[in-house]
């Protein structure tokens, strides 16, 4: 028996919700099917796949925003179910595709997670800690008292990363964090992700449908197509010598021909 650390999927399946399966010819019954995957701690791990392939659903399983129907997911050698969900989510942060700011200032947003542990009391948040986290995402202290909802989307996404960092997570799950950003903001955010990983040794699971992004940030890559992991390996290997024909077709941009009709899956 070899030692497993990191995040391990064993035979994980997730059915499509009933609401999304209206009668129709051959409705797709599974979002994720028999997923086996090992995400080592301390890496930047990319999950790459076309829209509707189940990437978001896979990511949500890791911090238990959703539970699979069958199979098992391990974190640090123990099943996810053995952790208290609220504690697990503080150790495994989640960055949503479109940032959502909580009401109030940037400081209120940063303080939210930190205050949760304090038996409901609204304590004064640790200002030094908030500033440190803002610096991590390349924002300065003038942001603290600004209204979070009035920031640009790019700034909001960085605040949402800083907000997650406030709970000192070991893993950060990122669901296409650049999808709402313009090219300049995208470049800055990708650089920031790499820096976060290097500075804090943070494990980052990065979901994207963009080949360039996977190539830019990921040390390892898994290819997810129609709810199945078709290939995993180091990013260099996967891109230069894919073993599966499906991967090859996806990398060459020819996969879309028959799966384009299943776009709605990623939109929440």
């Amino acid at each position: 028996m070899f030692q497993v650390s990191g995040i391990v999927f064993r035979g994980v399946s997730l059915p499509a919700p009933a609401a999304r399966n209206p009668e129709g010819p051959a409705p797709r019954a599974w979002i994720l099917r028999d997923i086996d995957l090992e995400i080592p701690l301390g890496t930047v791990f990319t999950i790459l796949g076309p829209s509707g392939s189940g990437k978001t659903s896979l990511l949500r399983l890791i911090n238990r925003l959703t539970d699979p129907q069958s199979g098992e997911i391990l974190f640090a050698g123990k099943p996810l179910q053995s952790f208290e969900p609220t504690q697990l989510r503080r150790r495994i942060g989640y960055i949503f595709q479109v940032p959502t700011m909580l009401p109030g200032t940037v400081a209120d947003n940063l303080a939210y997670g930190a205050n949760l542990g304090q038996s409901g009391r609204h304590l004064l948040p640790d200002r030094a800690e908030m500033l440190r986290r803002l610096r991590d995402v390349a924002l300065d202290e003038t942001y603290l008292n600004r209204s979070a909802e009035r920031l640009s989307v790019g700034e909001q996404q960085r605040v949402s990363i800083a907000r997650s960092l406030m709970t000192s997570p070991e893993v950060l799950l990122m669901d296409e964090p650049t999808s709402a950003l313009d090219p300049a903001a995208t470049t800055r955010l990708l650089a920031l992700i790499t820096k976060l990983h290097e500075r804090h040794g943070l494990t980052i699971v990065f979901v994207t449908h963009q080949l360039e992004q996977a190539r830019a940030v990921g040390e390892q890559t898994a290819i997810l197509i129609e709810g199945r992991i078709v290939e995993t390996g180091t990013t260099a290997e996967v891109f230069s010598s894919p073993r599966q024909p499906e991967t090859r077709r996806f990398l060459e941009g020819r996969l879309g021909e028959e799966t384009e009709s299943e776009e709605q899956e990623e939109s929440q």
Binding site: N63, L65, T86, Q87, R89, R90, G93, Y94, F96, V98, T100, L102, Y112, G113, L116, G117, G120, S160, R163, S164, M166, T167, Q268
Partner: peptide, 16 residues
């Protein structure tokens, strides 16, 4: 529900 899932993902209980 977006804001609620943000709170949950920061470690909030369902009541919080």
């Amino acid at each position: 529900r977006a804001a609620i899932e943000v709170r949950l993902s920061l470690g909030a209980t369902r009541l919080q």
